[in-house]
Amino acid sequence: MYPRPLADDAPFRRFAYTSMVVLILALWLVPLMAVMATSLRSFEEVMAGNYWGWPKSFNFIENYMAVFTQTAMARYFLNSLIVTLPSVFGVLVLSTLTGYVLSRYRFRGASLMFALFVGGNFLPAQIMMIPVRDLMVSIGLYDTYYALIVFHVAFQTGFATLFMRNFIAALPDELFQAARAEGASPWQTLWHVVLPLIRPALAALAILTFTFVWNDYFWAIVLTQSDAVKPVTAGLNNLRGEWVSAWNLVAAATILVAIPPVVMFFLMQRHFIAGLTVGAVKG
């Protein structure tokens, strides 16, 4: 292990080290704690400009209930889930396939194709704004969940392909030689050899994709307009306009929006780290 683990028999040093980490963590999260504290404040307190002190009164229930009762936030949440989950699923399926082929088959144009996947991933989203909107209109998907799902799947497949290709390329060759020797078809190889081994990578990718898609704001305003399909980030900004200076409510909504990715992250953290790991180590 690196750095060298602290010795078990040096309790003082261990304690000092832990305290230092806790201190750094506290500093690291100061901005977040300010949002949490503000989400509990009263409107008067926010007007008086208290953003960093201890809340003078705790309005947990009032503020968080206001988010749900005064706005369509519940609807936006559902919309976001309806967009995000199929997008994540689609990205995992497509990038497993593309990553598998690009890492295990040598054919002419493979490098170019890979280059396009990676390159497209570096593009700023704005460059595609108008053509993508027009595309969605012409195939009748504009202002539906599908418009967002199709776009996110397409766009995230770029990054995901880079990720999966590296991961699958790191799997030992012997496995594939053995599969070939036994006469396994490409499909069988993918299903029985590759898939069981890349689950951690899929978990890692699922979290990352979930986060990216869930937090998207730009495409939400380009591709949707109805409340019935609008995701939670657009809804959040909607609130910022509506509650001009009610930052306590905006803060509460902000916290609520952050909960799903945070929970997802905590649930799958173990697999996440494992998934990121293997792709990084070769041979």
Binding site: L116, M128, V150, A154, S185
Partner: peptide, 21 residues
């Protein structure tokens, strides 16, 4: 088989991302 595998991802990516750019 590999062609079939790579098609959906590549097509979608080509149509939405590459073409739009």
């Amino acid at each position: 088989a590999p062609t079939l595998f790579i098609m959906p991802g590549a097509l979608l990516f080509a149509v939405v991302i590459i073409l739009a750019s």
